[in-house]
Simulated scan of single mutants.
Amino acid sequence: MPDTDCDFEITFDQQRLDFRTVSDWLMASYWGGKRTDALHRSAFANSICAIALAEGRLVGFGRAAGDRALFARISDVIVAPNHRGKGIGKALVQALLAHPELATVSTWTLNTADAHRLYAQFGFRRVHDGNEMRLDR
């Protein structure tokens, strides 16, 4: 756990997830505005979810999805507004990258409009090589 000015824990136990809160956060985000609870339930069930808790209350969330062998995509990293700037987002990413079920993953991807500095700390870089392609439906 990184040095922070608040105590928190990271868990992967989805039984401890406050689904209502994280789904609301994501639907209020710039990237999740068109999502539904049903989409979140499916996405979370098919992902490794990192949950940040402070005094038992949800303060952050992130997830990784993929084949758990060769590739994974980090998505939905979000921290409660009153807990931002305390290292929680960094701890969530670090926990996902270190998860034992993802140990053999060699290709990690993500998409962000505003958190490039966070991910750059872990070696993520913008892709400009012309090989990466994307389909948005």
Rank of each mutant, 00 (worst) to 15 (best):
L96H: 08
L17S: 08
E55K: 05
E9W: 11
F122Q: 05
P2R: 12
R117L: 12
D114F: 03
M27C: 07
D67I: 07
M133K: 07
A45L: 04
N82T: 15
V93W: 01
A64G: 09
D129T: 02
D13H: 10
F12W: 12
L26M: 14
V93G: 01
F44H: 14
V79W: 03
G123V: 04
K86G: 13
P81T: 12
Q14N: 15
N46M: 06
D76E: 15
M133A: 07
R35K: 10
S47C: 13
L97I: 10
F71H: 02
P81K: 15
A91I: 06
M133D: 06
E55W: 03
V59F: 02
A103G: 07
Q121H: 13
T112W: 00
F19Q: 08
A43Y: 04
G33M: 03
R73H: 02
G33H: 05
L96R: 03
S29I: 03
Y30M: 02
M133C: 10
R20Q: 14
P100H: 04
R57T: 15
A98D: 13
L26A: 05
R63M: 06
C6A: 14
Y119V: 03
G87Q: 12
A120M: 09
H83A: 14
A95K: 06
F12T: 12
D114P: 05
N46R: 05
G60N: 08
M1T: 14
A64L: 01
C6V: 10
F8I: 09
G62F: 05
M1H: 12
D76F: 03
C6K: 11
C6H: 12
Q121C: 10
S106Q: 14
L26H: 07
F8A: 09
A120N: 09
M27N: 04
A115L: 04
G89I: 02
T112D: 03
D136R: 10
S106D: 13
L58H: 07
L97S: 07
K86E: 13
R134T: 15
T11W: 06
I10N: 09
K86R: 15
S75L: 09
G62D: 10
I88W: 02
A72M: 02
G32D: 03
R73D: 00
N46W: 02
R125W: 02
R125N: 03
A120K: 12
T36E: 00
P100S: 06
I51V: 13
R125A: 03
V105E: 00
T36D: 00
A103K: 08
W25Y: 12
N46C: 08
N46A: 11
T4V: 12
A72P: 02
H83T: 14
L26W: 05
L110R: 00
W25V: 10
